[in-house]
Amino acid sequence: MTNALMEKLSSAEILTAEDRQLLEGLSTVAQRVPAGQDLIVEGEKPRHTRLFLSGYGCRYKGLASGERSITSLLLPGDFCDLNGFVLGYMDHTIATISECDVAEIPPEAMTALMADSPRVVRALWWATLVDDAIWREWLLNMGRRPADQQLAHLFCETLARLRASGTVRGQDFPFPLTQEQLADVIGVSTVHVNRILQRLRGEELVALEGRRVIIPDPPRLAEFCGFDGAYLHLSQDGFWGRRGFWEKEPVS
């Protein structure tokens, strides 16, 4: 069940068989959570650390006016409240977008895991640093890229992340976000998202089938939006991010 996490962490650090066993032991208590549910709300104190095993989740923050911003997507292999484990209470809300399998890890197990293996600590630190790198890229996106490139960039990034966790192998992937949710991700109006999606489809940069996104020509889409996945740190030299995020196997 922790395959997505292990696959992802294998980019960061060579985990020993023993480390893998420690990580495998983590997700023994997994819950299936329906779509559109808050898992933990801003201000609450987390009792567990949660790990996404399948499905799409998000972090979001809201305003008194009811408007909100989705500040990150949570994909299989992502921890969602490592920060709460250290910081004490949540400064944002975590919710499911699609139906998700979520493992709940008690704090004692996290403490024991970190005490048992410095390599696992380093790998979790890596994952946290990569989350920061994704935020930096989203800030650049929101501040400086036009919305059509922002959306294209989000599709490239999501494909790269899903491939890194072994969740997806090809060039198409499930994408359960509504246009309203996409607007909350990229910070533009819903009608503008609707318009941009028409354009990306019209130019055959992406195809949408039900709740799936298909990227017919990933290098072309990457060039359109200036996607350079080196910030995902999926290989030490950055090559995989720049050139090969759509290739069958990561180039290390």
Binding site: Q179, E180, S189, T190, V191, H192, N194, R195, L197, Q198, R199, G202
Partner: peptide
């Protein structure tokens, strides 16, 4: 751009605000 997907709004006034935004 010709919209063939559409968006749902409870009232026409909401669709108006969405268009203007």
């Amino acid at each position: 751009s010709h919209d063939d997907q559409g968006l749902e709004y409870a009232h026409e006034a909401e669709a108006r605000d969405a268009a203007i935004r």
